[in-house]
């Protein structure tokens, strides 16, 4: 596993450029409608099941001018219809929150919808400013129990939950995302607790339940990193349904991805 890295520079250097991993111009799984998904580079979580381990290194990827990304987004406006727009995913976008604030403002000036797919790692004034320019936040809650969260990601879920609470205060829309990993995040009592915690939130439009899959495993091999969940198989249809059944008690909409 990649060692912990400081990410201060990522938020500061080259203010007009984003450090990105890759682009997907027909994103249909990262927010509503057709989306231009910018996968940014760098993440401090070390999720054992990470499907994009090549986005972790804060020094990897390449710099791309925001103006070029904006040009691409504008060229896609005819595809966005009423629902689509730009999603910044990663990696962890909040590591470049200052620059993303500029970028989201640019998008809003062109009338383009903005969406942030984040693990909620950081909550400072810059994050709060960014959230103001974020039409939809998709918050990945990796686990509700902090001990399990640390086991799964290497870090606490404390800030993630705080960020959710802050978003709730602002009254702006939010989706939750939860990856169901057999033996790791499928304990009914913890899923139940997650539901209890969020049941009164007004801003949560839906929760997406994402069954664990192994599509990213070969990337770990390419990077010469050991994949610890080798023996974990994707959840069965029944266990997905079980988890969804619990979540349906607490959320308006549960979408199985």
């Amino acid at each position: 596993m990649l060692a912990a890295q400081d990410a201060t520079a990522l938020n500061q250097q080259d203010p007009h450029k984003l450090r990105i991993h890759s682009l997907e111009t027909f994103g249909t799984h990262d927010g509503p409608g057709i989306r231009f998904v910018i996968f940014v580079q760098g993440c401090q979580f070390r999720c054992l099941y990470c499907q994009n381990p090549d986005t972790l290194d804060v020094n990897g990827g390449k710099f791309e001018e925001m103006s070029e990304l904006l040009r691409r987004a504008k060229n896609m406006r005819s595809y966005f219809a009423k629902t689509g727009g730009v999603t910044v995913s990663g990696g962890e976008p909040l590591l470049q929150r200052g620059k993303l604030l500029t970028f989201f403002k640019m998008l809003h000036e062109e009338g383009i919808n903005t969406c942030l797919d984040t693990n909620g790692r950081l909550l400072d004034q810059q994050t709060k400013d960014l959230l103001e320019e974020t039409d939809l936040i998709m918050l990945d809650v990796k686990h509700f129990d902090d001990e399990w969260h640390k086991k799964l990601t290497g870090l606490s879920n404390n800030t993630t939950l705080k960020l959710a609470a802050y978003r709730e205060e602002t009254g702006k829309p939010m989706w939750l995302r939860y990856v169901l990993v057999p033996g790791w995040s499928d304990q009914p009592e913890h899923i139940e607790a997650l539901g209890q915690h969020f049941k009164d939130y007004q801003t949560i439009e839906k929760i997406e339940l994402i069954p664990y899959h192994k599509l990213g495993v070969n990337k770990w091999e390419v990077l010469n990193m050991e994949y610890e969940l080798k023996d974990v198989e994707p959840p069965t249809q029944e266990s997905i349904e079980e988890a969804a059944e619990i979540l349906r008690k607490y959320f308006k909409e549960v979408k199985i991805k």
Binding site: G33, I34, S78, Y79, F80, A81
Partner: peptide
Amino acid sequence: TNLVNMMDGYFNGE
């Protein structure tokens, strides 16, 4: 929905 929007986007253009 996405296929409909994709074709609208492709044929209309920016």
